Amino acid sequence: MARFSVICLLFSSILLSSCGFHLRGDLPLSHFSAMYIQSQRHSELAALLSARLEYNKVQLLESYQKSAPMLHLINDTLERRTLSLFSNGQVAEYELIYKVRYALTMPDGEPSEYQFELFRDYQDDPNQALAKAKELDLMLDELRQQAANRIMRQLARLH
């Protein structure tokens, strides 16, 4: 019986590895041995990307070198659009729009520019201002995490 369990476990692991399965956050970035990230000072998105690149064994360079790719985070902005109002005219619900623009410059190549938008709905309540401010911060952190994941997937697709 123990032998059958070992064979099933071995078969399952071979099946998962042959289909290209990777653990979440573990992306094949072997084609990037080193990279330079250029961004605005104290960019939280840049910090997230740096941590993810280091986790995937990409060396982060202190300065730009022509022999290594450069990821330039041009900007990331949060906009909000009114979706609905209370009967007294105060905003009841917003749509948050997180926009990210970045460029990737490969060694001896021209920069390729990318941009995308992420959307979330946010219900506002003026009676719960402190709690809603904290909720907005958490939602923005989640949007940044999602943006970093999206950029990492884009980098993994490039060969």
Results as ranks from 00 to 15, higher is better:
residue 53 L to P: 03
residue 53 L to M: 14
residue 53 L to D: 05
residue 53 L to G: 04
residue 53 L to K: 10
residue 54 E to N: 11
residue 54 E to Y: 06
residue 54 E to H: 11
residue 55 Y to C: 03
residue 55 Y to G: 00
residue 55 Y to K: 12
residue 55 Y to E: 08
residue 56 N to D: 00
residue 56 N to T: 01
residue 56 N to P: 02
residue 56 N to L: 09
residue 56 N to V: 00
residue 57 K to T: 03
residue 57 K to C: 01
residue 57 K to L: 03
residue 58 V to T: 08
residue 58 V to D: 10
residue 58 V to Q: 09
residue 59 Q to D: 00
residue 59 Q to M: 07
residue 59 Q to P: 01
residue 60 L to E: 13
residue 60 L to F: 10
residue 60 L to S: 04
residue 60 L to N: 03
residue 60 L to D: 01
residue 60 L to C: 12
residue 61 L to G: 04
residue 61 L to I: 00
residue 61 L to A: 02
residue 62 E to G: 00
residue 62 E to L: 01
residue 62 E to R: 10
residue 62 E to C: 00
residue 63 S to G: 09
residue 63 S to Q: 14
residue 63 S to Y: 06
residue 63 S to R: 12
residue 63 S to C: 05
residue 63 S to M: 02
residue 64 Y to M: 13
residue 64 Y to E: 15
residue 64 Y to C: 08
residue 64 Y to K: 14
residue 64 Y to R: 15
residue 65 Q to F: 03
residue 65 Q to L: 00
residue 65 Q to R: 12
residue 65 Q to N: 08
residue 65 Q to C: 02
residue 65 Q to S: 09
residue 66 K to F: 00
residue 66 K to S: 05
residue 66 K to N: 04
residue 67 S to Q: 14
residue 67 S to Y: 01
residue 67 S to A: 09
residue 67 S to W: 01
residue 67 S to T: 14
residue 67 S to R: 13
residue 68 A to D: 07
residue 68 A to R: 10
residue 68 A to F: 03
residue 68 A to Q: 12
residue 68 A to L: 02
residue 68 A to C: 13
residue 69 P to K: 01
residue 69 P to I: 08
residue 69 P to T: 04
residue 70 M to N: 10
residue 70 M to G: 05
residue 71 L to C: 11
residue 71 L to D: 05
residue 71 L to T: 09
residue 71 L to E: 04
residue 72 H to D: 14
residue 73 L to V: 07
residue 73 L to G: 05
residue 73 L to P: 03
residue 73 L to N: 07
residue 73 L to A: 04
residue 74 I to V: 15
residue 75 N to I: 01
residue 76 D to M: 03
residue 76 D to A: 09
residue 76 D to H: 14
residue 76 D to N: 11
residue 76 D to G: 05
residue 76 D to W: 04
residue 76 D to I: 01
residue 76 D to S: 09
residue 77 T to Q: 13
residue 78 L to K: 05
residue 78 L to Y: 05
residue 79 E to L: 06
residue 79 E to M: 07
residue 79 E to T: 12
residue 79 E to P: 01
residue 80 R to C: 08
residue 80 R to M: 06
residue 80 R to T: 04
residue 80 R to I: 07
residue 80 R to E: 09
residue 80 R to S: 11
residue 81 R to Q: 13
residue 81 R to H: 09
residue 81 R to K: 12
residue 82 T to V: 15
residue 82 T to P: 11
residue 83 L to P: 04
residue 83 L to V: 12
residue 84 S to E: 14
residue 84 S to K: 02
residue 84 S to V: 05
residue 84 S to L: 09
residue 85 L to V: 03
residue 85 L to F: 15
residue 85 L to A: 11
residue 85 L to I: 08
residue 86 F to G: 08
residue 86 F to H: 13
residue 86 F to L: 02
residue 86 F to E: 10
residue 86 F to Y: 14
residue 87 S to N: 12
residue 87 S to C: 10
residue 87 S to V: 11
residue 88 N to E: 13
residue 88 N to V: 13
residue 88 N to A: 08
residue 88 N to G: 10
residue 89 G to L: 09
residue 89 G to A: 04
residue 90 Q to I: 05
residue 90 Q to C: 13
residue 90 Q to T: 13
residue 90 Q to G: 07
residue 90 Q to L: 12
residue 90 Q to K: 14
residue 91 V to C: 05
residue 91 V to K: 03
